[in-house]
Every structure is written in structure tokens, then in C-alpha cells.
Nucleic acid binder design. Structure first.
Length: 887
DNA sequence: TTTGTCACG
DNA sequence: ACGTACGTGACAAAC
């Protein structure tokens, strides 16, 4: 049986638009109509509890009624743009609610609704129609009620036959007669001039239809009225016809297809976020989900296992899928200690305290079994923690963190609880912080409390998999997900191996740099004539600009800027500035690289960085504790830091393999610009070539200034160029910068075209993608705020380039690693620095490794049966006794 | 915790 | 007229 709800989309949207104040989201998009509509929808869903639901919309401007009456709806004002811009968002909201949205060429929403309702009646199904338009009252029947909006959007008046008789004294089918007589100004249905609602109702009481009224025109009260009816009888008949809902619209969907489905909460959350519907977002939040649907993961059953029993042993040997989590005392798996391991099969949860693991061979074997599939959250972290206690972790089938990252890399690292509320809002998992306390108050739980919390976590991991997999598949991210999963294994090994540091060299260099720091500090103090904290930009600003009266070039929001580019401009004016710049440079080396690295140096004389796979929105890795991706190289002074990074033993070398100009090559690949492609095919120095192209000179005419400028433009292009950005970088005027950019685009027209297209694509789809289909959403692409929008546009240009370069090196890492394993090489991959890979290599493997790296890095996708770039990737390889020498 | 600065690609 | 280069992490100072 069930109940069908039909919503008159246009009518409700209009109502909402005019009833609500002009709300906008942060990007300045109007949202009031969508907001009102959504409120109404929620209310209807709750109050009517429909089994089936549909939203009908008008389509296009012309309908079959125009053939009957050309002026139909003629008087109606054009839809304001503030309203029409909201329609795509309404569609997204409906899509998220999984509510059908029906529009049919040539027909209005009324007709669509009329047809559905008729179908429903045939099946003896009840219907409820929601509209602001009285026309719809003609659909009222014993099966069908009509809700008319009263004030606002959510307040409605319910009409059944009884109510209709009471309010108008009419039968439902007489509504069209009413319209025929009185017309409808909003639809520009004429009716009989001079006949309003009052007269029309009076007439219909006596003569039940337009036809009857006309037939008895002589009996009507008042000469004037008789004349009008006689004169305009055709108009009345026409008006009745226009007001009649056509109930045989050819529909592409049957009623069965309108079944109510569970909303897609993740999509709903996303769209509400985008539209800035804070209150609705909160409604979505776990604590207000309806009681009966909402599972507080408070009372997940668990068992603390200190000794395996046979039944559990059996379960573990069945090779079924379990969620697994290893609880650590700290975030950093290289330092943390393992507290215990929890597992869940979606029904049963078990917790093994660390002591119970060590002697438990069955458990260890299960953890190490490649054929026992496991669901983890941040598998790399756990794999490393387990490696440190000599437990092998295999069979990692899912990583919730990686999946969530790929679905929206802009969210940054999420904790499990966030992912749960994103993708399974019907569940709720307390935040770790809420359980453990944060910061200094963080405490270690024990016993039952810990086991209970871990039971919740593993159960949540289990519950998330299906949703995440579906979403990944929908967005064509499954293959990339498999790649990231495998990469996590490689990264775990790299981190676990670590990089050997020559402690003596570090101390020696440290002493030397410390002396320079102290020397420069006292020199600056002497010149300044007072002592102050040179590390404080605030105090330095006061000295430079107040005391010494140097000109202020740039300000920050808190005061004077003392950044390097400002100081460089001030250098000619005062001898102190040069010293300050030098001091800054040296103190950075000392604090960040000497002291910073010393702090991270373990008893094994190795540094174990962490690579983060889910931080950078472009798909790049990042590195921390310590960051080994920003070890100095540009200035000789700093570059010497690299001397402390050495191979594990003296018969090994450090080997560095770096892609030459990957990002520009990627740009050439993506844009297919012939001039750029040729430059790379001919293996030119790309910056010199660009200089020749944009300044129209021969190679020997390229000055170092021209090459420098060309190089800056090439970078600018990758970053999503702006004249201002380039002018800042090159210290030239904006106009000059613009001229250079114009010349660049004249030279490489397909690059220009590519940039325009990618922005267009971002506008259309709301996201951009990389070569492997990695997505980044850019909601600000529609922002009214110039800054936000420009930022999004530059991101749209940069992300496919930076992200594709990330795809390339990630694939290469896997290919290289796989080959190294195959050949049982004892070389080790140590670091990745965005476009280069660092290894330690025994002397006897050196030549093979170089071959292998060339092969695999230049064709990174071949190993995975994917097509490589048409453009050649070029890798430079060198080796040395330490990282410094490998240049 | 936020801000300014600077190291890298 | 707006006020920007893209992506990171670490440090010290100042709130």
C-alpha cells in the first residue's frame, strides 16, 4: 500500500525564495530557497513518513499549454538569478537525500504530479501533494490530500474533500471551473474579466460547472454579469482548459522507482557544508539522529583475551576479514610503545594486552598471515609499531585512513571518529581526545576502559569498509587506492630502516655553526648599540624601523615585516641588514637542522622520519619528526648539512635519483603544447629554451637575466600564474610581468588553452583530477570573493600538475621496490623528496641499481599495466659517500 | 595556540 | 578595486 508524496518543486522553491531573507553561504551564493526547501522536505519526511517520494519540476519555457494559449504565463516575471543559481544545489540536495527528481519536456510540475497521483490511485495507494498553488486542489480525492503552503514554507494547510467543501464549498473537480471563471493572475489565465473569487464561488454553488453557468447565463443575477459571461464565454472555457491538469504525461519512471531510500549522509554532509547549513549539519550530527536508527557505540561487547581458547583459534584460522587496531602510547610509531591489539569481525571484539601477544603464536601467525584479510586505520603507523616489536603484519586489505583521504584529500588527516561521522552518521564513535583527554591531561587508560574503547574503534572500522569501498568505486578511485595501500608498505619499510647519521660530523658541524651564530649575534648587537632578541621579528622591527629609521617596505597584520625579501631591499642602506640576513640563515641551520636533527637521533644513530600519505591535498607525501624533505641544498652553507647523512656501512654509497623537470614535463603531457613538447623531445635546457622562445632570441643571445626570468615564468605557470605573483618574484612591475606572461602564452598557446579548460572543468565538476584520477574538490571556484575564487583557480591549474607528478613518483616507488625485491637486492630505499628518491646501495649493486632506477622511474606506470606518458621522463642519477656528495 | 619566518620541492 | 604565486614542516616569540 504505502504513501506517495509529490512535491511541486518550482512552487516550493519560489515560496522559499520569497519567504526567507536572502541568505548566502561563505562564497556569496544565495541559499535561501534551497534552505527553505530542505527544511520543508525534512518536515514532510518526518510527518508524512512516505514510502515513496518524488519532486516534480517544470522543464524549459514552453509547454503544451502555449499551443493553446500563446500568452500563457506571459505576465510572469523572469526568474531572478538569485533563485535560478540555486537550482543546481537543490538537485544536489535531492540527490543526497536519494529523492527522485522528475521533469518532462513540455509538461509542468502539476501535470507530472497529476499523473503520478493517478497511477497511485490505480494501485489504491495514498498520496500527499505539496505545493503553494491552489490549482493542485483539483487532485484531492479519497486517496489524495493536498498540502498548501501557508506562511513561510514549513507551515501548511491540509486539504481533503471535506476541508475543500468547508473552505470553498466545492468538489475537487470544480477547482478548474473556479479558475475558468475567476482566472489566475499568476499564471496569466484570463478567466472572465470582472469575476473574482467571491462571484465565481457564488455561481458555482448554483451551477456546478463553467458549462452550466454559460448554459444558464440568462438566469444569472445582474445584467452586467450576464453580459460579461456571454461576451467572454470562450475565454472561460479556455481558462478552464488551461487550468486542467493533464494526467497522462509520458513518464520515464514508475511509482515503484520512487521508493524512499536512506539518504546518503556523506553527500548530505558535503552539500550542507558547502551551502553553510550549520543547523542542518548539526541535525545530521550523531547526537540528533533519530533514536531508533542511531547506534551509540557505547556498549560494544568485548572480551579481554589473555589466553587463546580453541574457538577463537578456529575463528582466526578461517581467513575471514577482521578489523585490527594496535593501540600505542604516542602518535609517533618510532617512539611509542605498544599497549595491545584489538580485533573485530563486526560482531565480536577481542582485546589482547601486549603481554598476552608475545607468547601467543597463533595470534602472531594470524597477524603475519597474508591470506587473513585485515581492515586497519593508518596501517603504516601500526605496521611500524609492530615491526619494532618484531611482529610481522601482513594481509592489510583496507586502510580506512587512506580511503577517506582519497575521497577528499582536502580534509587533511582525519581521526577515525571524524571518518565515522562523515560516512556513517548513523553510528558515533567518541573522539580519542574525549576518552584520553588532550595535551598534558592525556592519560593512559587501562583494563576494561581501554578494551571497551578499542572494541568501539575496531567495530567502527569494520562498519565503514562497505561505504568507503562503494564511494571509492563511484569516484573511480579504487585503482589509486590499491596503489596507495601498497605504497604504505614501502613507506613503512623506509621509515623503519631510517637514515644513518654520522654523529661526529653532526657535532663538528654544530660547533662550527654555533660559533658563527654567536659571532654574528654580537656583531649585530654592537652595530645596533643595544641588546635585544634578534630572533624576535617584533623587536627587530623596532630596531630597524623606529631606532634606525629605515623605510618600511611591507607590513604584516601585527607590525613591520622583516622577511628576507624586505631585508634584501634594505641591505644597501645599512650595514646591519646584511649581518641580520646572515644571522637568520645561520641560526636557522643551527636550530632547525643541527639541534633539530640531534633531538631526533636515536640510539641506533639513525633518523626515522615519518612520511605522511594523507596530508597534502595534491597527493604529495609530507615528512615530519624530523622533516627530511627540506634539508638545505640551495645555499652551500646549508647544503653541508647533507654531509651528516651517510650509508649504514662503509661499503655502501648514497644514491640519488631525481626526475628532471617533472612538473614541466607533466604540463607538456597534459597540455600537449607542440612547442613545449618539442623542447623536451630535443632534451633542451627548458629555461633557456623558454627564454629563447619568449624573448625571440638565439641560444647565445640568452642572458642570465633572461634565463632567470624565463625560469620564474615556468614556475609561475605551474603555480597558476598571476602578474602580481611574477612581479613580486622577479622584482619587476606588474605591467612588465603581464607582458612576459602574454609572451609566454603566445609562445605556448596550448598551455593557455589547457589552463582555461581546467578552470572550466573545475567550475563544471567542482573538482579537478590528476593522471591517476586523484581528485581535489574546489568549492571556492564559484566564490564571489575575488581572492577565494582566484585561489581556487590557481589551485585548479596547479593541482593536476603537482598531483600528477606525485602519481608518477609514487608509481615509480612501487615499481622500483617491487623490482628490488624480485632481484633480492640489499639496497634500501631511504627517502622520497617529491621528485627524487634516495637509496643506500652496496658498491657491488651500484651499477644494477642505476640501470633499474632508469628503467622503472622513466616508465613508472608500465609495471602496473597502465599506459606511460607519451613524453619522455628523464632521471638524473648520482652517488656519493654521503647525501652531500650524491649530487 | 597563533604568527612570522624560512627550509625544501 | 580587489591583493595573490603551488605544496609542505619546524622553530621562536608572543599572545
Amino acid at each position: 500500500m504505502g504513501k506517495l508524496v509529490c512535491i511541486d518543486g518550482n512552487s516550493i522553491l519560489f515560496r522559499a525564495f520569497f519567504a526567507l531573507p536572502p541568505l548566502t553561504n561563505q562564497q556569496g551564493i544565495h541559499t535561501n530557497a534551497v534552505y527553505g526547501f530542505t527544511m520543508m522536505l525534512l518536515r514532510i519526511l518526518e510527518e508524512e513518513q512516505p514510502s515513496h517520494i518524488v519532486v516534480a519540476m517544470d522543464k524549459g519555457k514552453m509547454t503544451f499549454r502555449h499551443e493553446t494559449y500563446a500568452d500563457y504565463k506571459g505576465k510572469r516575471d523572469k526568474t531572478p538569478s538569485e533563485l535560478s543559481e540555486q537550482i543546481p544545489y537543490l538537485q544536489q540536495v535531492l540527490d543526497a537525500f536519494q529523492v527522485c527528481y522528475v521533469e518532462v519536456d513540455q509538461y509542468e510540475a502539476d501535470d507530472i504530479i497529476g499523473t503520478f497521483v493517478k497511477e497511485a490511485e490505480k494501485q489504491q495507494m495514498k498520496s500527499v501533494v505539496i505545493s503553494g498553488d491552489k490549482d493542485l486542489l483539483q487532485l484531492v480525492s479519497p486517496y489524495t490530500q493536498v498540502l498548501l503552503t501557508k506562511r513561510g514554507v514549513t507551515e501548511v494547510e491540509r486539504y481533503d474533500e471535506e476541508k475543500l467543501a468547508e473552505r470553498y464549498g466545492l468538489r475537487p473537480e470544480q477547482i478548474i471551473d473556479l479558475k475558468g471563471l475567476m482566472g489566475d493572475s499568476s499564471d496569466h489565465i484570463p478567466g472572465i474579466p470582472g469575476v473574482g473569487e467571491k462571484t465565481a464561488l457564488k455561481l458555482l454553488k448554483q451551477y456546478p460547472s463553467v458549462e452550466e453557468v454559460i448554459a444558464h447565463v440568462d438566469e444569472l443575477p445582474g445584467k452586467k454579469l450576464q453580459e460579461r459571461v456571454t461576451e467572454h464565454q470562450d475565454l472561460a472555457r479556455l481558462s478552464k482548459e488551461l487550468a486542467t491538469i493533464y494526467r497522462q504525461v509520458p513518464l520515464s519512471r514508475s511509482i515503484d522507482e520512487l521508493k524512499c531510500l536512506e539518504p546518503n549522509y556523506e553527500k548530505l554532509r558535503q552539500i550542507f557544508q558547502q551551502l553553510g547549513f550549520k543547523t542542518l549539519l548539526e541535525k545530521l550530527a550523531p547526537n540528533s539522529i533519530e533514536e531508533d536508527q542511531h547506534i551509540e557505540m557505547q556498549n560494544i561487547p568485548y572480551q579481554i583475551v589473555t589466553q587463546l581458547d580453541h574457538s577463537l583459534e578456529d575463528q582466526l584460522q578461517q581467513q575471514k576479514t577482521w578489523a585490527l587496531h594496535a593501540e600505542l602510547t604516542a602518535e609517533n610509531p618510532h617512539h611509542a610503545t605498544l599497549l595491545g591489539i584489538a580485533i573485530s569481525d563486526g560482531e565480536h571484539q577481542y582485546y589482547f594486552p601486549v603481554d598476552a601477544i608475545n607468547y601467543n603464536q597463533v595470534l602472531k601467525q594470524w597477524i603475519a598471515d597474508d591470506h587473513s584479510p585485515k581492515i586497519l586505520f593508518d596501517s603504516k603507523q601500526i605496521e611500524i609499531a609492530l615491526m619494532r616489536v618484531d611482529i610481522q603484519l601482513n594481509g592489510i586489505q583496507e586502510d580506512i585512513l587512506l580511503a577517506a583521504y582519497l575521497l577528499n584529500p582536502s580534509e587533511g588527516t582525519q581521526n577515525l571518529s571524524d571518518v565515522v561521522s562523515h560516512y556513517r552518521p548513523d553510528l558515533s564513535l567518541p573522539q580519542d581526545e574525549a576518552v584520553y583527554g588532550k595535551g598534558a591531561k592525556r592519560k593512559q587508560l587501562e583494563g576494561d576502559q581501554l578494551a571497551a574503547h578499542l572494541a568501539r574503534k575496531t567495530a567502527a572500522q569494520y562498519a565503514l569498509v562497505e561505504t568507503l569501498q562503494t564511494e571509492l568505486a563511484e569516484k573511480d578511485l579504487s585503482e589509486l587506492y590499491q596503489l596507495e595501500l601498497k605504497l604504505a608498505r614501502v613507506l613503512a619499510e623506509m621509515e623503519f630502516v631510517g637514515v644513518k647519521v654520522d654523529r661526529g660530523a653532526l657535532e663538528l658541524l654544530g660547533t662550527e655553526i654555533k660559533e658563527r651564530v654567536d659571532q654574528l649575534y654580537s656583531e649585530v648587537m654592537e652595530i645596533a648599540g643595544t641588546t635585544f632578541n634578534l630572533n624576535s621579528p617584533k623587536q627587530l622591527g623596532e630596531i630597524l624601523f623606529d631606532k634606525l629609521g629605515l623605510p618600511v617596505i611591507k607590513r604584516t597584520k601585527t607590525g613591520y615585516s622583516t622577511s628576507a625579501d624586505v631585508l634584501e631591499k634594505l641591505a644597501p642602506q645599512h650595514e646591519i641588514v646584511e649581518k641580520i640576513l646572515l644571522y637568520r640563515q645561520v641560526v636557522k641551520l643551527y636550530s632547525t637542522y643541527i639541534e633539530g636533527l640531534r633531538k631526533e637521533l636515536g640510539d641506533d644513530d639513525r633518523i626515522h622520519t615519518q612520511f605522511h600519505q594523507t596530508i597534502a591535498a595534491t597527493g604529495r607525501l609530507s615528512s615530519s619528526e624530523p622533516n627530511l624533505q627540506n634539508i638545505p641544498i640551495r645555499l652551500e652553507e646549508g647544503r653541508r648539512i647533507r654531509k651528516i647523512f651517510v650509508p649504514s656501512s662503509s661499503d655502501q654509497r648514497i644514491l640519488a635519483a631525481d626526475y628532471s623537470q617533472v612538473e614541466l614535463r607533466v604540463l607538456a603531457q597534459l597540455s600537449k603544447d607542440p612547442t613545449l613538447l618539442r623542447a623536451f623531445q630535443e632534451n633542451r635546457d627548458i629555461h633557456t629554451q623558454t627564454a629563447m622562445d619568449i624573448f625571440s632570441v638565439t641560444e647565445d643571445q640568452v642572458t642570465s637575466l633572461m634565463r632567470r626570468q624565463a625560469k620564474a615564468v615556468n614556475f609561475g605557470i605551474i603555480y597558476g600564474i598571476s602578474d602580481y605573483g611574477l612581479s613580486q618574484n622577479l622584482n619587476i612591475s606588474r605591467k612588465e610581468a603581464q607582458q612576459i606572461i602574454d609572451r609566454y602564452f603566445e609562445t605556448y598557446p596550448q598551455v593557455k588553452e589547457y589552463m582555461d579548460n581546467i578552470i572550466e572543468q573545475a567550475r563544471k565538476d567542482g573538482y579537478v583530477t590528476t593522471h591517476l584520477g586523484r581528485r581535489r574538490y574546489l568549492p571556492d571556484i564559484h566564490a564571489r570573493n575575488y581572492n577565494l575564487r582566484s585561489f581556487a583557480e590557481r589551485t585548479a591549474m596547479n593541482t593536476p600538475i603537482q598531483g600528477t607528478a606525485a602519481d608518477v613518483i609514487k608509481a615509480a616507488m612501487l615499481a622500483v621496490h617491487q623490482q628490488m625485491q624480485k632481484e633480492k637486492l640489499s639496497s634500501r630505499m631511504l627517502l622520497q623528496v617529491h621528485d627524487e628518491l634516495i637509496f643506500e646501495v652496496p658498491e657491488q649493486e651500484l651499477s644494477r641499481m642505476k640501470e633499474l632506477l632508469c628503467e622503472k622511474m622513466e616508465k613508472p606506470f608500465e609495471t602496473f599495466g597502465m599506459e606511460d606518458f607519451s613524453i619522455r621522463l628523464h632521471v638524473d642519477i648520482s652517488d656519493g659517500a654521503n647525501w652531500y656528495e650524491a649530487k
